[in-house]
Nucleic acid binder design. Structure first.
Lengths: 339, 339
DNA sequence: CTGAAAGCGCTAACAG
DNA sequence: CTGTTAGCGCTTTCAG
């Protein structure tokens, strides 16, 4: 592997001159530059990032943390975000270190895991997808001024940039559409306690019921303790009901589609027996029969925004934070019936 | 950010002693060790990989190259591989640098792009998914002994480890099933010239026809110049046929599903009008109606194997290469009809 | 316009 | 058992 020294020797100059040519800064005589360029080419020189990074304290790598990679498979939520992130980072010559929070359980310093790539200087900043930050995480992040951007949660910290969806507004939109179609017995599916997005959607649901003068019924709120392992529990709870809702408004497409598959297996017709709506805009929703009525999140744009924010924050770790909230479009499918 | 020096000062020892404690090698008196550990904790020390890497020439990062990230979305082929890769790399404390070959077009040193992360010392080795290596790439890789593992292609080099599917055997299996169902007019869909896997499947198709004494018909081989943009061309070519096949055996699920969507839009019933089979085992194939008959690739295991191979090769860049070929299972759906 | 010196954080090799 | 020295490849700073 050739380095500055080799090139410098071959060109008969000092390593500083070569460095200047490589980075195209400082003054170098044209003649010298040509000599150096020739040597660079001949030795097929590639700058070694390690040396550079060590004294610039910048590695040009951004860590992207996903809960685990498995869900990428059935639910491309993270993948689509990643695609947006990648577009922008590539443009600015940064690479992606894709990581999961899996080690958390096995390491002694449990809480630090979100930031491990940064702390080890493998990354200049962190984009967190689907993370739940503990107070301890927040403290660490603020103390060390770790450049952080969170997608899909709203941590309370003046140093964290946030990219998220206008959950409340969007969920009201789809509920309004459901109402418009004549539905009055509206259930909520896919409740989760610790997921900020789902909580917001759930609040919108309750708000909507109140606004329309519809009763809130606790047994019309369906959760599954752990997706996808216990998915069937949700369906079973639904089947046990005596007074059935006419529509299930799910918190995410993943829940909606899971329910539809269970229903199909059980011989329950959708939307004839019960209508269904989702939230996310996963492509698979348009493949299935009936196609899913859902809210389409602009995940690519959201990923792009996150990448831009993290790069800005790395430039200036103390600038005040930005909270970028995105609009969501209604995507009509056949899973929602006129009553 | 604390470093060895800080810790050493606080503990009243030399940085070497601290280094020994951190890496748990060499002899350190218990008493001293305790002192150091206390200081480490108090300063919340994290080893800086840059310093370490610079003199060990090892960064504990593996680059994973995908063609682009976009296809991850509709076709989780790469995502599932990635999941397998991640499992193993995490186990061995390596991180993933996820990259695309996109820069290739925009850089002057076009051919080097697969290896850029390695050449810049951002990674210790490279796993290539969906890559097509030019002779120039091969030369570079051999000269520089770049640890490389290729998934889904069979480059001719004694230094490259390969993970792939037994395409021929697998495609014969699905063709045999098609034959068993009574089909004799069998077409091949989703032909691509430069894709090794598809070529192998296509060869198996021709071999099968010959073996069964069925005629090969060039207009029963359908390709689409560029997926997904020109997907419709494939469907249109099919519609224009006078003598229709009874079944389309597609080279990949992506092609099969694309065709099925076009068919649905055009009001063509599947499998009534024509049966369809795929290859890959994409989850979405089981969501759609009719569900897709296909071959299930063990992508997770393949990813795991690739990760193990690359780690081994980094240990010993000159060891002879391994070609790991995986079996594929038949997955019966409703897209294939009895005749 | 070019070069010499120092140092980023760490570890290998050697000395005590 | 512990410390000193040198150096990984690069850039920043300062001197010429």
């Amino acid at each position: 592997m050739s380095n500055l020294k080799n090139v410098a020797q071959m060109a008969g100059v000092s390593i500083m001159t070569v460095s200047r040519v490589v980075n195209d800064n400082g003054y170098v005589k044209d003649e010298t530059r040509e000599k150096v360029k020739k040597a660079l080419k001949q030795l097929d020189y590639y700058p070694n990032n390690l040396g550079r990074s060590l004294n610039q304290n910048r590695v040009n790598i951004i860590a992207v943390m996903a809960p685990i990679i498995a869900p990428l498979e059935s639910d491309p939520y993270y993948t689509r975000l990643l695609f947006g992130i990648e577009t922008v980072l590539t443009e600015y010559s940064n690479d992606i270190l894709l990581s999961t929070q899996r080690r958390r359980a096995t390491q002694s310093r449990a809480e630090y895991d979100y930031f491990r790539p940064y702390l080890e200087r493998k990354a200049d900043g962190v984009i967190l997808m689907g993370a739940i930050l503990s107070p301890h995480d927040l403290k660490l992040l603020e103390e060390r001024k770790i450049p952080t951007c969170v997608i899909g949660d709203r941590p309370e910290s003046p140093f964290i940039d946030v990219v998220d969806t206008k959950n409340r507004e969007a969920f009201l939109v789809i509920l309004e559409k459901i109402y418009e179609k004549g539905h009055r017995k509206i259930a909520f599916g896919g409740y989760e306690e610790h997921n900020f997005n789902i909580q917001e959607r759930f609040l919108a649901y309750k708000e909507f019921l109140k606004e329309k003068g519809l009763p809130y019924r606790a047994n019309w709120v369906f959760k599954s303790p752990k997706m996808p392992e216990y998915r069937k529990m949700l369906f079973n709870a639904f089947r046990k009901l005596e007074d059935n809702p006419s529509v299930l408004a799910f918190s995410t497409d993943a829940y909606a589609i899971g329910f539809m598959m269970d229903a199909k297996e059980a011989g329950l017709q959708i939307p004839l027996s019960v209508s269904v709506s989702g939230f996310d805009g996963a492509p698979v929703g348009q493949f299935i029969e009936p196609s899913l009525t859902t809210m389409m999140q602009p995940l690519e744009s959201m990923g792009q925004k996150a990448a831009k924010l993290i790069l800005q924050r790395i430039e200036d770790p103390t600038r005040s934070n930005e909270i970028a909230l995105f609009d969501v479009d209604l995507l009509m499918g056949n899973s929602l019936m006129d009553l």
